[in-house]
């Protein structure tokens, strides 16, 4: 009996290592933990505990603060219900922030994808000096958003920068100081529509992040075997059809990744706006991140700031959670 048990355990080693990864539902899991697993657990535990406390613990803490009355320098954790959320959704500034975020996100992601794809297809044509172009397009990504913000603040300043040149043609756009709302209509306490000023911020953000999507798409294009194109050509497809029917569908996973990454950047954007335009006149370029910072650290409205943080988390979750779920499903 004893011998068998030892053998059984030995046998388990290899078996376990497989099942630990695959979690085979067909076998009943045994609750004995082997030495290897103890070691693995030992190595994982510190980071697991740290992440648990410093990520999820503090998300929970922020959630708790967001339903408290802590809106002065003195912490006050009495339960306030959804008071802070109700205040925010009635607040002129926060409504403007949500409007700006919606339009910024749509324009930003759309342009980054279109330009990244277009440029990567051009670069993929095996032209001379390809690496020079690739580097030129990639370099802005190496900058921090603060640098980009300061540079574009002056380039798109109505009295300096591009307007000096555009004056030749008699065009003087007001860029990010423009307070007009395109196609605006009254909604809540704000005018809902495309704020003209946000376009200036989108230009700066797209300039910076196009390099990223270009790199992703280029990697994707290089990963598509030439045989597929050859095969399509043999079948008599035109170049345009090859891109439409073969290449673009194969780049779909990359597009999804780009959308997810860009969405979480644009929903949480803070540094670019803070360095470039600030809140803007009438809050035309304000975003939740900037509002959160100012209301928390200037106004000491800690609970309001926490509520904004939670709302931003939920907004990002709208994009991330379906992505993670589909990934898990396809992984299995």
């Amino acid at each position: 009996m004893a011998e068998q048990a030892v053998k059984g355990e030995e046998h388990d080693y290899t078996e376990r290592n497989k099942t630990a990864v695959q979690a085979d539902p067909g076998k009943k899991p045994r609750r004995k933990i082997s030495k290897d697993q103890w070691v693995a657990l030992g190595f994982l535990a510190p980071s697991f505990i740290l992440v648990l406390i410093f990520v999820y613990g503090f998300i929970g803490w922020t959630g708790w603060v967001s339903v408290s009355n802590w809106n002065t320098l003195v912490p006050d954790f009495s339960f306030a219900g959804l008071k802070n959320y109700i205040y925010l959704f009635n607040d002129y500034r926060f409504q403007a922030d949500l409007r700006n975020t919606v339009f910024f996100t749509i324009l930003f992601i759309g342009l980054v994808i279109v330009m990244g794809l277009g440029l990567s297809i051009l670069i993929d044509q095996k032209l001379k000096g390809e690496s020079i172009f690739r580097n030129i397009f990639l370099f802005p990504m190496a900058l921090s958003f603060v640098v980009t913000g300061v540079v574009w603040q002056w380039l798109l300043n109505p009295s300096t920068g591009y307007n000096q040149f555009l004056a030749v043609f008699g065009i003087q756009p007001k860029w990010y100081t423009d307070t007009n709302i395109l196609a605006g209509f009254e909604w809540g306490s704000i005018e809902f529509g495309l704020p003209v000023a946000i376009i200036a911020v989108v230009i700066a953000a797209v300039w910076q992040m196009t390099g990223f999507s270009l790199a992703m798409y280029l990697a994707g294009l290089r990963g598509i075997p030439d045989e597929l194109r050859e095969a399509a050509r043999m079948d008599g497809a035109s170049e345009l059809q090859i891109y439409k029917k073969v290449i673009l569908p194969m780049l779909m996973p990359i597009t999804v990744s780009v959308v997810i990454i860009m969405a979480h950047i644009s929903l949480k954007i803070f540094d670019l706006i803070y360095a470039m335009t600030g809140s803007g006149a009438n809050f035309v370029t304000d975003v939740p991140g900037v509002y959160m910072f100012e209301t928390t650290f200037r106004g000491n409205y800690y609970a309001n700031g926490a509520a904004i943080a939670i709302i931003m988390l939920l907004l990002v979750a709208v994009f991330i959670v379906p992505y993670l779920l589909t990934n898990r499903r396809s992984g299995n």
């Binding site: 500034r93 809140s279 009438n282 000491n300 409205y301």
Partner: peptide, 14 residues
């Protein structure tokens, strides 16, 4: 108080 100043600045901005 700072809370009022923040709100006053927002009102002025609008």
């Amino acid at each position: 108080a700072e809370g009022f100043v923040t709100k006053a600045n927002q009102a002025v901005n609008i």
